[in-house]
């Protein structure tokens, strides 16, 4: 501190001097994420797409999540309907039930819950898998044999989640409607025909499109953050757990951040 200092102070010095270390680390992390993002795009358009690996990842990510997503979605639809029924009944507005429930499912619950589930299931497994490949030097081995690990491991996984998570969201919405219909029929009766007619009369393109775009962004975030955390994990066995864990935490937070942004933007547009 008593060192004679020159008059020139760089931005880096200001950051080092005045910002708390945790915030500095956050900025550094953000910088290296940006670098990873750029690397992803560079490798996305490189010759020789890894089709086999991509299709296998779609299977791993998408197909293997169908059960989990469907079960959760069914229960969500059922519970939401049961919860809202008494309130609407008080106002004598029970006939609004399908419309109201379906709007909240399509706009918010479907995309967010499904993506959070995927953050827990997929981002963690990608983080752990790439993390352990990093620790056991398999990624380095690909690198030194002149096989591009970014293209083989990362591009395929990110594209797979970006494609399959929106599809899972659509599935989830549909299954939630079924759950809701079952709930309606617990206390009263409504034919499936009538129920779904009411739903499709309520939902509009303004609900569907932002929700679909949102799902694509969520899918990208889950794959991107899982890959980033795994690919950049430290050496040492404990870092596999750290990679998996922080992949879940970071991707869950970013799902909510993206959600917030997309809602703000759609409110401006419509």
């Amino acid at each position: 501190m008593s060192q004679p200092s020159t008059n020139k102070i760089t931005a880096a010095e200001i950051i080092a001097e005045y910002l708390p270390t945790s915030f500095q680390n956050f900025l550094i992390e953000l910088g290296s994420m940006l670098q990873f993002f750029i690397d992803f795009f560079k490798n996305l358009f490189k010759r020789g797409f890894e089709w086999n690996a991509f299709i296998r990842q779609c299977f791993e990510v998408g197909y293997r999540s169908i059960g989990l997503v469907s079960l959760t979605a069914f229960i969500m639809g059922l519970v939401m309907t049961l919860q809202s029924q008494p309130t609407l009944a008080n106002f004598g507005a029970e006939s609004w039930l399908p419309g109201m429930v379906s709007i909240s499912i399509v706009r918010e619950i479907g995309p967010v819950i499904t993506s959070l589930l995927c953050a827990g299931k997929i981002a963690s497994s990608i983080g752990a898998e790439l993390g352990s490949m990093k620790v056991t030097e398999q990624i380095d081995a690909m690198e030194v044999s002149g096989s591009n690990p970014m293209k083989y491991l990362v591009v395929t996984r990110i594209l797979a989640t970006t494609l399959t998570i929106p599809l899972l969201v659509i599935l989830s919405d549909a299954v939630s409607f079924c759950g809701s219909w079952v709930a309606v029929n617990i206390n009263s009766t409504m034919s499936a025909m009538l129920f779904f007619n009411k739903i499709f009369a309520t939902i509009e393109y303004e609900d569907l499109i932002p929700s679909f775009i949102k799902s694509i962004l969520f899918g990208f975030a889950v794959g991107f953050i899982g890959c980033y955390k795994g690919y950049n994990s430290n050496k040492g066995t404990e870092s596999v757990g750290v990679a998996a864990n922080s992949a879940v935490v970071t991707s869950s937070i970013s799902i909510f951040l993206i959600d917030m942004l997309v809602v703000q933007i759609t409110n401006l547009l419509y």
Binding site: S132, M133, T136, E137, Q138, D140, A141, M142
Partner: peptide
């Protein structure tokens, strides 16, 4: 590599 680094 020291630990062979085979692709599991």
């Amino acid at each position: 590599f020291q630990n062979s680094a085979l692709y599991d």
